Simulated assay, not measured.
Amino acid sequence: MYTAHPDRYVDMPYRRSGHSGLKLPAISLGLWHNFGPERPVTTQRAILRRAFDLGVTHFDLANNYGQPPGAAESALGMAIKADFALHRDELVISTKAGHLMWPGPYGEWGSRKYLLSSLDQSLRRMGLDYVDIFYSHRPDPETPLEETMGALHSAVQQGKALYVGISAYSPELTREAARILGELGTPLLTHQTNYSMLYRHPENNGLLDTLDELRIGAVAYWALKQGLLSSRYLYGIPEDSRAASDSPFLNPHSVTEDLLRQLHALDNVAKSRDQSLAQMAIAWVLRAGRVTSVVIGASSPEQVEDCVAATSNLDFDADELALIDEILQGAGKGA
C-alpha cells in the first residue's frame, strides 16, 4: 500500500501558469517512452511514486505515447487505481491529441471529430472522468483553427477537461488560437514547446515573447535534448542509449566531435555550480521564470531525483550565461 510522503510539497517550486489560478510544479513528469508493456510495471509505479513524493504533481501524456500508442495512458490508469486514487485532486493530468492513432480520415490532426473521439478514448484508458489539461498536439494545416479551438472549448464545456493548451504552434497561430478561445470563454492556459540550450527557437521566433504578452504558461519539453545535455554522452554513445538505437529523434550522427567538446565545457560550468550537466540544463530553461514547467522523462526513480534537484539552484549570473553562450557559439539558436 502506497503512502505519499507527508513533506512532498515542502521543496518543489510551483509556478502560476499564465493568467490563471493553476500552479504547475517546476518539474513535470512526462510519460512517453518509459511507460508501457516494455518496462516492468513495478518500475513504472516506482517512478510515479517517487515523483509525487518529491512534489511532482503534473503527469503529462498524449494519446500516442507508449508502444503501442495509448500504452502510456493505460499504464497511468493502472497506477492511479493502484496508488493514486486517493490523490486524484492533488494531480494535474494532461493529455494531447493530434498525431496518428487509427486508420482512415478521422484518426489524426485537428478535426472536431478526431479530437473529441480521442479524448474519450484517453479517458477510458486512464479510467478518469476528466483530464486537467487537454492539448491540441499540433496545428492542422487543413482544418480551420476555429474548429480545432472549438473542439477544445467543447471538451471543457462537457466537463471532460478543466483547461486547454496547444503544442508546437507558431507565435502567429498561438495568438490567433488565444483570440478564438478567449471569445469562446475558455482561456488558453499553456503552450508546450521544444526548448533547451541546444534548441532556442522559442526565443528566436518570438514565441516566448508572445506567451509573455498574452500571459500564457510555457511548458518546455526536451530540455535535455533527448539526453544529450546529460553526462550520458560525454564519452561517446553507450550501447543501450537512444542514440545507439537510431531512433527518429536521436541517432549516432547527432553526437559529433564538436558537440562532445561543447558538452564537456558545459559540464565544467555545471560542476562550478555544484550541479550535474542535466541539472544545469533544466535550471537554464527555468531561469528567470519565463518557463512555467519543464517536462522530464525518466527511466528510474533516481533520474527523477536528479532532475528535481535542479530546482535547488535556478539562478545564473551574467558571466555564467555569457560563458554558456560562448561555449555553444550559436548552436541551436536558429534551429
Rank of each mutant, 00 (worst) to 15 (best):
A283K: 08
R290Y: 13
D325W: 11
Q279D: 05
V308E: 02
R273Q: 05
D325V: 07
F316P: 00
G334S: 12
I327V: 06
A331Y: 14
A281M: 10
S312K: 15
A335L: 11
L323P: 04
G297S: 04
D274Y: 12
A331G: 05
A288Q: 11
A298Q: 01
L286K: 06
A281P: 06
V308Y: 04
A335E: 12
V294A: 03
L328E: 03
G332M: 05
M280T: 08
L328R: 14
A278V: 10
E302Q: 10
G297N: 01
T311V: 07
D306V: 15
L328Y: 09
E302F: 11
R273I: 07
S272D: 13
I282A: 02
K333Y: 13
L321K: 10
Q303G: 06
K333C: 08
V294Q: 03
I327G: 03
D319K: 15
I327Q: 04
K333G: 02
S299H: 08
A309H: 08
A322M: 10
W284K: 06
V295T: 03
I296R: 04
E320P: 04
P301V: 03
D306N: 13
L286M: 08
S272K: 15
D317M: 14
T311F: 09
N313R: 14
V295L: 08
M280G: 07
G297I: 02
V285N: 00
C307F: 13
S312D: 11
Q279S: 06
S272Q: 14
L314P: 01
Q303V: 10
E305P: 00
Q275I: 12
I324D: 02
I282T: 05
A318Y: 15
A288F: 06
Q329P: 00
V285E: 00
W284R: 07
E326R: 15
S300E: 02
K333M: 07
E326T: 15
I282E: 00
I296P: 01
V308W: 05
I327S: 02
V308T: 05
D317K: 13
A281G: 09
V294M: 02
A322K: 12
L323A: 15
A335S: 12
A331Q: 13
S276K: 02
R273T: 03
V294H: 01
D306P: 00
T311K: 06
S272R: 15
